[in-house]
Design a protein around this nucleic acid. Structure first.
Length: 414
DNA sequence: ATAGGGTTAG
């Protein structure tokens, strides 16, 4: 149980209640609930839930809806779902709260399932519901559903002035692979905010269109209408990373804090470390990690370890491995990388030592994939799956195709 | 008119 002060919204509410229940109405309770959710750490939604019962507001649908998002924000999806089940008169807002909960818990397919259930229940989506459904489409790559929502919105009036909706639409097309339509929406936009620019820059970057992304970022700065934020710089650095533009990436990383007062986060450093490593600049990557103001995480060190093992730099690999043992000692993949590093450097005895330790652990790495809601698992050199012949055939043709396109690219001098 | 539900990274 947390300690709370006399002035926190819950205590105030209880005080008012004791003074005379008639002084409290639904609005008062709702305001208090919202304040509770905003404090950090947020008040446990179960306490709020109990209080609603005590004050006699437990069946007010607006309050129940607020509790759905409160449970969701406290990482309690099961209780959010249960809360939804308790609502007897569901409207578009309560459905939307649940859809949003699934989106925020990285379950876009479940979000879309609920979106369809809502319509089967004869509840018409409004533009907020459509906006959240679009972000679910973007996250799961559900382009056809996204296009359906676009058509639906056009019939319902377009919502072109709603930047929330417009940005979600533009982002959906970009994430689902249709950068052309995304750019068409961008060029035709009546208004643009940071999110519009950022979604478009990231969209280009994700699809390897580094030049378009960087040109757009220049244009954004020249227009002076919006100020880039941390996410914008993730897009810019991703673009540099895909195009191998080392100098440009370093310049933008410095410009972030110098010109915009944005302290680079781990994801920004991650982009640049990855780029330096893939360009073979391992010493520079290491120096950047050591110079960071924030504590490097396992992903960053693992990037360096992978590069060091690929190039047989066993000294640097050891350095990365040491940090990884502190951060994530149980991660078996790092042993594999380390043994590869020794092998690449010709240090066979050291390689054998690592291998032997791995054998003692005996935990084979396992990959899994979900197809039509059945999960299939594979370990290395697995021959047990009934469709292995078909799968190997597909893999062979993929490998063949990528060899072909590589030949074409090198023929063009790229 | 409408408490409550909203967009950007990997």
């Amino acid at each position: 149980m947390q300690r709370r002060s006399k002035s926190d919204p819950l205590s105030r509410l209880l005080f008012l209640h004791r003074a005379g229940p008639s002084r409290i109405d639904g609005h008062t309770v709702l305001l208090a609930l919202n304040q509770c959710v905003k404090t950090s750490p947020p008040t446990q939604p179960r306490q709020l839930h109990a209080l609603m019962f005590r004050l006699g507001f437990s069946s007010l649908s607006a309050l129940q809806t607020t509790l759905i998002s409160a449970y969701s924000q406290c990482w309690n999806l099961a209780d959010a779902r249960r809360m939804f089940g308790e609502i007897t008169h569901r409207n578009v807002v309560s459905w939307t709260a649940l859809i949003s909960a699934y989106v925020n818990h990285n379950r876009p397919d479940d979000a879309l399932r609920v979106f369809r259930q809502m319509q089967a229940d004869h509840v018409e989506p409004d533009r907020v519901a459509l906006t959240i459904a679009l972000s679910a489409c973007a996250d799961s790559g559900a382009r056809e559903t996204g296009e359906w929502i676009h058509a639906y919105a056009r019939r319902a009036g377009g919502f072109e002035d709603d930047l929330f909706f417009y940005n979600a639409l533009l982002n959906m097309y970009a994430k689902c692979g249709d950068v052309g339509t995304s750019r068409w929406l961008f060029d035709g936009a009546r208004r643009r905010d940071v999110m519009t620019w950022t979604s478009m820059i990231v969209g280009h970057a994700l699809h390897g269109q580094a030049e378009e992304a960087l040109l757009l970022f220049d244009e954004m700065k020249r227009s002076c209408a919006v100020v880039p934020n941390g996410v914008t710089f993730v897009g810019v650095l991703m673009a540099c990373s895909h195009a191998g533009l080392v100098g440009e990436a370093r310049w933008h990383l410095e410009s972030m804090s110098r010109d915009y007062g944005l302290e680079p986060r781990i994801s920004h450093y991650g982009c640049v470390v990855d780029l330096l490593c893939r360009s073979g600049l391992l010493k520079e990557a290491h120096a950047l990690i050591e110079s960071m103001l924030i504590r490097p995480n396992a992903v960053i060190w693992r990037t360096l370890l992978a590069a060091a093992s690929l190039r047989g730099d066993s000294g640097l690999a050891c350095r990365a491995r040491r940090s990884l043992l502190e951060l994530e000692p149980g991660y078996d993949g790092d042993d594999v990388a380390m043994s590869n590093a020794y092998a690449a450097a010709g240090l066979w005895n050291e390689k054998e030592n690592v291998r032997e330790k791995m054998e003692q652990k005996r935990v084979p790495g396992c990959s899994s994939i979900e197809v039509e809601s059945r999960v299939h698992e594979f370990v290395s050199a697995d021959k047990s799956h009934t469709l292995r012949r078909e799968m190997h055939g597909v893999l062979r043709s993929l490998a063949e195709n990528s060899r072909l396109s590589e030949t074409v690219l090198s023929y063009r001098g790229i």
